[in-house]
Design a protein around this nucleic acid. Structure first.
Lengths: 236, 236
DNA sequence: ACGATAGGCGTACGCTGTACACCATGTCAA
DNA sequence: TTGACATGGTGTACAGCGTACGCCTATCGT
């Protein structure tokens, strides 16, 4: 028999390094979601024993932070010299693009306990776009608070259902029951039901247009910031 | 010897019920944080074996959802007949009050995978305040998207540091090093540093005023919604 | 030639959620 | 009165998690 390389997992000849570990984790998360990124699973993916990873990352938190850092480092930077609203807009939409490519990113950012360099860099770059427009740092500060997680490309949706992990929890209730449910909903929650109806008439094909939703809010806030700016607003 | 009641844990004579389990979980989370709410810990608290809890809650997700539901059910409702902005404002600030009493609530809401009745009820009530002002459901829909998690009383802060769990990670670096760090920060991240400086001059005593921050954004958005409303805005 | 170092391995511990079988009790119908 | 049945607490067990600790080997600078 030939006792050479391991059977299944890809095990390269050269030793691991931090970058390889982190990018493998990103790829794994892209493929199977953030929950699948356990030290054991990732190690198996790399053809290595779990504890080997700890030679390259301090702990799981460090790994996740590094994953975020890697993706955020790849955010597209708009050309300099843009009007400030456009600069902010492009940076935020750039973040959103990355988010759409790496759906786990939102969860990772929300769970993050550190601010890594790339993360700070993005926040600084966004602040810089504001500042280039002549907004006072006072206003920039509060405007960025208003943007909140939107600078990472997502809004904290009060409505949107969680990402529908795999199989539907209820096995498709019969249409009759569903109609009864709808009626009960309409009675108990008239306003959100009305919203649902209103939305359905406007967008017959599916749920609401997330991208429109996102840009709507973004532009709304940007306009409000501009108004405050030209009015010489100050926090005290 | 007296082989009667268990030694340490409080074990009442009457059997458990769902409400008792859930409110014990809330109390535990209030005392020791959401992370401390494990089935085993909670069961121990109730003087019961872990699996006993599964007679009252379907699983951990169900428990957390019920915890959220319980707190949200207690949100203060403003008197009817308020001007719509004031109605929304009071409901949202009421949610914020509950959040300040139960710091774990934010995390629980963010992690929630279900919309329980109380949760839907709050969303509906907020929508109702808008609707009472004559806003179209179309605009209500988009305005609530804009509010996002703010209707739960918190804004997703891009800046605020995570809640500083227990001991500081670094054991208070020497002042000399700290100054060097600050200088390096200022060079690499000029804008956020400028914000920090600006903020420090305005609020010499501490970090920024979260409450002010929150209300600033809230009022900003509300004013923008009002402007759209009076301009007859529609999404298409 | 040799010690230091880097990097992968193996074992083990304590923690998590929860499936499954079992048993005591209270309630109700026959 | 008796048996069926539901309710609720128990005990054991399993798979998975992060990670502390010690060992072993290959490489490299001196």
């Amino acid at each position: 028999m030939a006792p050479d390389v391991p059977a299944l997992a890809t095990r390269s000849a050269t030793p691991l390094n931090r970058a390889a570990v982190v990018s493998a984790a990103v790829a794994l998360a892209d493929r199977e979601g953030l929950a699948a990124v356990s030290m054991r699973h990732l190690a198996g993916e790399l053809g290595v024993v779990p504890m080997a990873l700890y030679k390259h990352v301090a702990d799981k938190d460090d790994l996740v932070a590094a994953m975020v850092d890697l993706v955020v480092a790849g955010y597209a930077a708009p050309p300099p010299g843009l009007e400030w609203r456009e600069g902010v807009r492009q940076r935020v939409l750039g973040a959103r693009d990355a988010l759409l490519e790496h759906p786990w990113l939102r969860q990772a950012i929300e769970a993050a306990t550190q601010r890594t360099p790339s993360v700070l860099g993005h926040m600084d770059a966004v602040a810089g776009e504001f500042a280039a427009g002549g907004l006072s740092y006072d206003l920039v500060h509060h405007s960025m608070h208003a943007l909140g997680h939107r600078i990472w490309g997502f809004s904290p949706e009060a409505f949107s259902s969680p990402p529908a992990s795999g199989a539907p929890p209820a096995p498709a209730p019969p249409a009759e029951e569903q109609a009864a449910m709808m009626a009960a909903m309409a009675q108990r929650f008239p306003h959100i039901s009305a919203i649902a109806v209103d939305t359905a008439t406007r967008h017959p094909l599916g749920a609401c247009d997330e991208q429109f939703e996102f840009e709507f809010t973004l532009d709304l806030l940007l306009e409000a910031f501009a108004r405050l700016h030209s009015a010489g607003w100050s926090s005290r």
